[in-house]
Nucleic acid binder design. Structure first.
Lengths: 111, 111
DNA sequence: CGCCGGTATTCAGCATTACTATGTACCGGT
DNA sequence: ACCGGTACATAGTAATGCTGAATACCGGCG
């Protein structure tokens, strides 16, 4: 992946995953596959798993092991109240950033 | 600063600075001050200077020392051709990310 | 004259996060 | 019994922003 996009993902990927989980519970493998579908073509599996471990340790999600017919048991993550709060904060930060960037893009450079 | 926004800035801050420089040449102290004005209230000075060193080393800007009436000489940075190319790439990446995020925000979660 | 505040840049050390690469484990079909 | 696809986990590396402090130049004030 481009080094630029890679660096941009730092900090946003967590928000992206939280946003996905706000739609419905999901497990790692599924999230990775969905991200690839969306064009994040080269996000490594390991990256997503590591991120899920982090948000679990910070108490943003509840976890449940669910047996799978096709492989080892899945760890299904569900966004909890604290996770929703963190997601709200993420959207606020994202909006702030996006506004400033849009301004800059339209030539709103310093006077 | 919020750890979330901090992490989001990784990768975008470079684009922001390049965008500022696409408007007109500027020096570090000035850029820091402008960022604070825009609400990036707690971006450390050291961060901006380190970033400027990086983009200089990657050859995205031309540098000129200009004497100041009020202090030590200023290092004035000007975006060059390669910098403009990197900025274009940044906007492409940003658009890609922003589109996906907007979709997610509107409930476009995985089916 | 000496000190202070504002201007301006630089650097060492730390934390966070994404990547690469690899390893483990479970399952069904051939 | 093996292989491919499903599913999760981890060790080590690189990039970037932060903190905190140091350096330096200048004008004005006591």
């Amino acid at each position: 992946m481009g080094r630029q996009l890679t660096e941009m993902l730092k900090g946003t990927l967590e928000g992206i995953v939280l946003a996905i989980l706000s739609g419905r519970p999901a497990y790692g493998y599924e999230i990775t596959a969905w991200l690839r579908d969306q064009g994040f073509s080269e996000i490594a599996e390991g990256t997503v798993y590591a991120l899920l471990v982090r948000i679990e340790q910070r108490g943003l999600v509840d976890v449940e092991k669910v047996p799978s017919e096709k492989g080892p048991p899945r760890k299904v993550y569900t966004l909890n109240a604290q996770g929703r709060e963190t997601l709200d904060e993420f959207w606020r930060n994202w909006s702030f950033l996006a506004e400033r960037l849009d301004q800059l893009r339209e030539g709103g450079h310093p006077s």
